[in-house]
Amino acid sequence: MPATSPGPVGRRIAYYRSVARPKMTQQQLADRAGVALGTVRKIERGERGVTDGTLDAIAAALGVDPARLLADRERVATRIRDALPTLSAAIAAYDVPDDGPVRPLSELRASVAQITAWRLSAQYLQIARRVPDLLAELARASFSAPSENDQQVAELLVTAYRAADAVAYKHGARDLSARLIELMRWATPGADDPLLAATVGYVRTEVFFAARAHKAGLRALEAAIDACPPPVDAGAVAARGALHMRAAVIAGRAGQGDAANAHLTEARTLGDQADEGVYQGTAFGPDSVRIHEVSVAVSLGNDHVQRAFDVAREWKPPADLPAERRSGFYIELARAQLWGGLADDAFESLKVARRIAPQHTREHSWVREDAATLRRLKRADAESLTSFAEWCHAD
């Protein structure tokens, strides 16, 4: 596999090694990564590049996403795109998996929890590297597991499909994303869990966003809300609240302001009953609802930007929220600021989004559109704005 250019990647490796807790020596890094000490030394001194395999091993030893070590963000996107055919092949064989080993249920559960954590922190390269093999193994498990484990395996399969969908959707593979969502819907009845079904209804909205079929998406979400269990415990409160949050956004995109506000009000009421957290793989709570207030304002159009400004003036997403959700807040705020004539503020918001979740920000279509607009509006601010626009492939 091609090697990185020496220099920046070595400096990043040395930095993350120095801030590890406890601090890691070069020898310890070499031992944990399974590479020679001399290789680590040469990489950190900028005397040699790093192959994909070595980079992945070092990143795993450091406990960071390989994308954090790369200066060449295009290479991250290329590696993810190159992994999509393997993912597509894995799901093509969902009902006729290849023979192979199947780990105990506890180990499968731990692997699914890990890729869910990567999804929430927008580490799409990590998911792309691991999820095809995991999906194949879970498909084998679904055929070979004892009957008493059927529901648990089905739940793990749905959750893994969701992580794979995040990669496909964020990187523009919308047909693959739609296939993954249909597989989520196919596997969900086997889990016999109405809260998981509500989660799938939440994720399914991506199909409607991609097709700009907002009215149909709103109908689908309202049907999912009707089917959701009553909010008698934390899980049900969060499931119903998340559906209302998403219904508010898609209602705004459909131009239905009254419906958007009604769903947002329901989400806010439910959010006040829940501690902020991740439920069934979806963040929900008062902070998530505040972020969706900005989303709804942007969805309703530039006549509603003051509403987004009012939220942002008094509140910022706390650091313990999932990175993807926090970066999404700043991406949406940047659009509102651009519409409100605050070009400098919009650029600052986009830079914050990039610091929080670079992969999520780089692949977001609004970031590209807004960076291109900012470059046209501020031709005199050449270097940093042009660099950002080129980084996210803005036209």
Rank of each mutant, 00 (worst) to 15 (best):
Gly49Glu: 07
Arg75Pro: 00
Leu55Pro: 00
Gln27Leu: 10
Glu44Asp: 09
Thr39Arg: 03
Gly10His: 11
Gly49Ser: 10
Arg68Gln: 10
Gly10Met: 14
Ala60Gln: 10
Tyr15Phe: 15
Ala59Val: 04
Met24Ser: 00
Asp72Leu: 05
Val19Pro: 00
Arg32Val: 02
Val35Met: 03
Ala57Phe: 01
Val35Thr: 13
Asp56Glu: 13
Arg17Ser: 05
Gly49Phe: 06
Tyr16Gly: 03
Ser5Tyr: 13
Thr54Glu: 03
Pro22Gln: 15
Arg68Leu: 10
Gly38Met: 10
Pro22Val: 13
Leu62Cys: 01
Val19Leu: 04
Arg75Asp: 15
Ile43Met: 07
Glu47Phe: 08
Glu47Cys: 01
Gly7Ile: 13
Glu74Asp: 15
Arg41Trp: 07
Tyr16Pro: 00
Gly53Glu: 13
Ala30Tyr: 10
Leu69Ser: 07
Arg17Asn: 04
Asp52Leu: 08
Ala30Gln: 11
Leu70Ser: 02
Leu37Ile: 14
Ala30Lys: 05
Val19Gln: 02
Gly38Lys: 11
Val40Ser: 02
Leu70Met: 09
Val19Asn: 08
Asp31Lys: 13
Ala57Ser: 03
Lys42Tyr: 00
Thr4Lys: 03
Leu69Asp: 03
Ile43Arg: 02
Ala20Asp: 09
Ala71Leu: 05
Lys23Asp: 01
Pro8Asp: 14
Gly34Val: 04
Tyr16Glu: 05
Arg45Gly: 04
Thr4Pro: 05
Ala61Pro: 04
Val64His: 01
Asp56Tyr: 11
Glu44Lys: 12
Ala14Cys: 08
Pro6Trp: 13
Ile43Phe: 03
Val40Cys: 03
Asp65Met: 07
Gly38Tyr: 10
Glu74Ala: 13
Arg11Cys: 10
Val9Gln: 12
Gln26Glu: 09
Ala61Val: 04
Ile43Asn: 01
Thr54Gly: 00
Ala33Ser: 07
